[in-house]
Design a protein around this nucleic acid. Structure first.
Lengths: 244, 244
DNA sequence: CGACCGTTTGAGTGCGGTCAAAAGAAGTGG
DNA sequence: CCACTTCTTTTGACCGCACTCAAACGGTCG
């Protein structure tokens, strides 16, 4: 037990040294409990913090001038988020919990220590940033070039793949904590149309609803119509610096 | 003269030490000249390289199963691109030149040296990655939640802002090296509809075509209808480690 | 029990796509 | 330099996917 959710995540890629573990634990020595729907940061607020999510779900989003919302990413346990604070003094996105959640804020000074003293962790942070960038480019293609049905399918597939990565016990059933309105805001659709697409996916035998849970009945099929590429499979860590 | 296009870019944020300059120059000691339209990398090809663009324009894109294309980002001189190689062994996107171009490939081993010996540069790389991530989230909101006209306006505004950042002489006129088909592939529209939107923007007095160049006649107005947020203005570098 | 929120369904509309054709621009080779 | 091909832009007519508006239904919480 490392006591650090984030260290556990990273340890799945490379065995960490004690010194590295201690450095990561320092990012999580200030956990905070929040109820569902709590605002963590609002866009444009001054913000020097980033977060590691220990329990629960969160999401980041943008509100446009006309009041519409674009959900940027869902955050699950072990995720580091709010990382744009590393580059900007003001939050570039709003962060909110989607369930009761425990999160660990840490400030940029803590990040400085990691970069200064732990080059291998720094490289891992960079790798994670690149993986998230790729995830965003995949979603860009999804919104820009695929149908409503495909976009919903892509969101659901991505949730399944990511949640299963965190919990190997998950096979085909995931909690669907999102309202259809939120699915719409993530996929660039209206809630009404999301409802129709969910029904269509169910009629195609791809998914099934089961009191609050979503059952993916045909993962291959869902991934296929979603144009989904599973990139979580493996990262290339061959170039990492020696640990300290 | 540092001899490194990328070092010049970074030096605009922080004065670099000689040692840092030398490390960056090593990333560019293998320049390659390519004609317009040359493929640099194809999606799914094995790839251990990243690139610094010294002259010319390039772009990255994805091709979907149905053959449609999503352009992910335009790359201008001084940009580092193809960075997803840092995380993956296979290219996650295709890269192609949009003009005669000089680019400098470097491999992951070179990146390892930077992370190992130059924590401040590593932190800068991380900051740049975050800034690009934010740029992608802005585009996600653009594709997901704004009209065709707004998307085209956002692309044009972003090009103006980025090109002016590279060349202070640019005020309102930029070369438009993109075909309308390419603008469509970047914004998730068809070439035909891009044509209509360009005409609409011209009729609104926002832009003007001038033998291959685009004149932005009302930058404020264009940015407003685009829902454009200029985030290039300033990065927060307060937390950077000490240089080496 | 009512108030509220989310889901579901229907009817009608419109934005952006599709198809088609012509005109213009830019290479390419003789 | 011209003839030819190919690419790009432009315009028109029509279509359909996803949006809008509206109403009913169901679950949940005070």
């Amino acid at each position: 037990m490392t006591g650090s959710c984030f260290a556990e995540r990273l340890a799945r890629y490379v065995p960490l040294t004690d010194s590295e573990k201690r450095a990561l634990e320092r990012l999580e020595n200030n956990p905070r409990d929040l109820p569902r729907g709590a605002t963590i940061t609002r866009e444009n607020d001054n913000c020097d913090e980033m977060y590691v999510l220990r329990h629960g779900w969160a999401m980041s989003y943008l509100i446009l001038d006309d009041g519409s919302r674009q959900i940027l990413r869902l955050h699950f346990p072990g995720d580091m988020f709010g990382t744009s604070s590393a580059a900007f003094g003001e939050a570039t996105e709003s962060l909110v919990t989607m369930s009761h959640a425990t999160l660990c804020p840490f400030d940029k000074q803590a990040l400085r220590v990691v970069f200064d003293e732990h080059p291998r962790l720094a490289a891992l942070f960079f790798i994670i940033a690149q993986a998230e960038r790729v995830s965003l480019t995949d979603r860009l293609a999804s919104l820009g070039r695929t149908s409503a049905k495909a976009r919903v399918a892509a969101l659901l597939t991505d949730m399944l793949v990511r949640l299963r990565f965190l919990n190997k016990d998950i096979s085909d059933t995931i909690p669907l904590k999102l309202t259809q309105e939120e699915i719409g805001d993530a996929t660039g659709l209206t809630a009404v149309h999301v409802n129709r697409m969910m029904r269509a996916l169910a009629e195609d035998g791809l998914v099934m609803r089961n009191n609050g849970n979503l059952v993916i009945r045909d993962e291959q099929g869902l991934a296929r119509i979603a144009n989904y590429v599973n990139r979580y499979a493996e990262l290339d860590l061959g170039w990492l610096p020696a640990p300290r």
